[in-house]
Amino acid sequence: MPVRRGHVAPQNTFLDTIIRKFEGQSRKFIIANARVENCAVIYCNDGFCELCGYSRAEVMQRPCTCDFLHGPRTQRRAAAQIAQALLGAEERKVEIAFYRKDGSCFLCLVDVVPVKNEDGAVIMFILNFEVVMEKDMVGSPAHDTNHRGPPTSWLAPGRAKTFRLKLPALLALTARESSVRSGGAGGAGAPGAVVVDVDLTPAAPSSESLALDEVTAMDNHVAGLGPAEERRALVGPGSPPRSAPGQLPSPRAHSLNPDASGSSCSLARTRSRESCASVRRASSADDIEAMRAGVLPPPPRHASTGAMHPLRSGLLNSTSDSDLVRYRTISKIPQITLNFVDLKGDPFLASPTSDREIIAPKIKERTHNVTEKVTQVLSLGADVLPEYKLQAPRIHRWTILHYSPFKAVWDWLILLLVIYTAVFTPYSAAFLLKETEEGPPATECGYACQPLAVVDLIVDIMFIVDILINFRTTYVNANEEVVSHPGRIAVHYFKGWFLIDMVAAIPFDLLI
Rank of each mutant, 00 (worst) to 15 (best):
385 L>I: 08
106 F>P: 01
376 Q>E: 11
183 G>T: 09
164 R>C: 06
318 S>E: 13
122 V>L: 12
202 P>I: 01
193 A>R: 03
154 W>T: 11
318 S>A: 08
108 C>K: 01
142 A>K: 09
248 L>E: 12
384 V>D: 08
51 L>K: 01
145 T>F: 04
355 D>G: 12
248 L>T: 09
11 Q>F: 12
268 A>V: 14
60 M>Q: 03
200 L>M: 06
317 N>M: 12
218 M>Q: 13
228 A>Q: 03
112 V>H: 01
156 A>W: 15
316 L>K: 04
299 P>Y: 05
21 K>E: 13
299 P>G: 07
6 G>M: 15
263 S>Y: 09
263 S>Q: 13
349 L>C: 04
91 E>R: 14
196 V>S: 01
47 G>P: 01
58 E>C: 01
250 S>F: 15
101 K>Y: 01
9 A>M: 14
45 N>T: 06
161 K>Y: 01
129 F>I: 01
141 P>F: 06
302 H>W: 15
172 A>T: 07
207 S>T: 12
337 T>M: 14
124 M>V: 12
42 I>F: 01
152 T>E: 05
287 D>M: 07
329 T>H: 14
264 S>Q: 07
116 K>H: 14
276 C>I: 13
65 T>M: 06
248 L>P: 08
174 T>P: 15
10 P>S: 14
250 S>H: 03
16 D>M: 07
187 G>N: 12
258 P>V: 09
223 A>F: 04
296 L>C: 07
284 S>V: 12
147 H>E: 08
7 H>Y: 06
6 G>A: 11
359 I>L: 12
361 P>Q: 12
117 N>R: 13
355 D>W: 07
75 Q>S: 14
157 P>C: 09
24 G>D: 13
273 R>E: 09
237 P>N: 05
358 I>T: 05
6 G>R: 01
313 S>Y: 12
365 E>Q: 13
177 E>G: 15
304 S>T: 14
52 C>Q: 01
173 L>F: 14
342 D>Y: 02
112 V>E: 01
10 P>F: 15
289 E>V: 12
369 N>V: 07
219 D>I: 02
250 S>I: 11
151 P>S: 09
171 L>D: 13
128 N>T: 08
59 V>H: 01
297 P>E: 08
316 L>D: 15
83 A>N: 11
87 L>T: 08
367 T>D: 12
260 A>P: 05
9 A>E: 12
178 S>Q: 11
142 A>P: 13
298 P>K: 09
346 D>H: 03
316 L>W: 14
284 S>C: 01
130 E>A: 09
346 D>R: 08
358 I>V: 14
146 N>V: 12
142 A>D: 06
75 Q>I: 01
46 D>F: 02
320 S>R: 08
5 R>M: 08
78 A>T: 04
126 I>H: 01
333 I>G: 14
140 S>M: 15
299 P>H: 07
172 A>K: 06
75 Q>Y: 04
67 D>T: 07
294 G>R: 05
159 R>I: 06
160 A>D: 14
280 R>C: 08
230 E>Y: 15
42 I>H: 01
176 R>F: 03
12 N>Y: 15
262 G>A: 05
89 A>K: 13
153 S>M: 04
223 A>M: 06
75 Q>W: 01
10 P>E: 13
230 E>K: 05
114 P>Y: 01
106 F>Q: 01
203 A>I: 06
149 G>Y: 06
259 D>P: 05
194 V>M: 01
303 A>T: 14
328 R>S: 14
145 T>M: 05
21 K>Q: 12
293 A>I: 14
303 A>G: 07
210 L>V: 15
276 C>H: 14
32 A>L: 01
283 S>R: 05
88 G>A: 13
174 T>V: 10
319 T>G: 08
347 P>D: 04
357 E>N: 15
212 L>A: 12
346 D>C: 09
323 D>I: 03
379 S>M: 14
49 C>A: 06
137 M>L: 15
220 N>Q: 06
370 V>L: 08
44 C>H: 01
33 N>C: 05
218 M>P: 15
351 S>Q: 15
21 K>H: 11
120 G>M: 15
342 D>T: 03
220 N>D: 07
131 V>H: 13
369 N>F: 12
55 S>Q: 08
188 A>L: 06
107 L>E: 09
63 P>K: 11
63 P>S: 15
312 R>A: 13
254 H>F: 15
146 N>W: 15
82 I>L: 15
171 L>A: 14
41 V>A: 01
348 F>S: 07
47 G>Y: 06
27 R>Y: 09
321 D>A: 14
18 I>C: 06
257 N>I: 07
131 V>D: 15
